[in-house]
Design a binder for these strands. Structure first.
Lengths: 108, 108
DNA sequence: TTTCGCTACTTTGCAATACAATATAGTTAC
DNA sequence: GTAACTATATTGTATTGCAAAGTAGCGAAA
């Protein structure tokens, strides 16, 4: 299990990454994240985060009917969101680079 | 600059990693972290974190005189701390693994 | 036809933590 | 004697993942 504190700041970027290629809805995102190995990410985590992305103009959404259940709210990145995703990737690499150098030095 | 939210959960593990090899004092830790590329980590971040490690039995500390300034409080990992460090490393690799798979798939 | 299971979204409130700000104080060099 | 660097501690704040609870559509088994 990845501790929740360690997901802070990273999860938002990861969700932006998920919706960056094709419109995706919340429920599907939680399943994809589990597939990638993030563990079960609570819906109470994903939905508020999506609403926040939308509110901040990083994503926009549209409802589409589903053939197997309630309608789905598909999210996709705005241009501003694409830029934010690029910034996240840069920061993420900065972090993993720093941690990598540290672990290297202590022989881990 | 690595956003502070992204450091949450990771920084504690990194500081454990720093003091795992040799006793280190707070001020020195902030400098080492900067050297590794974490950016300037505020003292208001490091000291409370060290006190927390100590309080939770993950680290112990002793004061030693300095030849160039005030006395220093050297921190070192306890056995419990070593175990916690190992757990952190496992979680960290779980996270980077998951993010890696995600970024792979979206072609980043 | 009712109930269970899966799908799907929203809201409220809490807990953890990095950090800014502030305070304190020893040492050295000008 | 005062500025600059070294060194630790405390208080309060903002962010954010998540638990919990609620709403609701659909299909299949009972």
């Amino acid at each position: 299990m990845i501790p929740s504190q360690m997901l802070k700041g990273t999860l938002e970027g990861c969700i932006m990454a998920v919706i960056s290629r094709q419109p995706t809805y919340g429920y599907e995102i939680t399943q994809k994240l589990a597939d990638y190995g993030f563990g079960p990410i609570a819906e109470g985590t994903v939905y508020p985060l999506l609403l926040r992305l939308e509110k901040n103009g990083l994503a926009r959404a549209e409802y589409r009917a589903s053939e197997v259940g309630p309608r789905r709210k598909y999210y996709m990145l705005t241009e501003k969101g694409q830029a934010e995703l690029a910034a996240f990737l840069a920061s993420y690499r900065e972090l993993t680079g720093a941690v990598g150098r540290l672990l290297d030095e202590i022989g881990e």
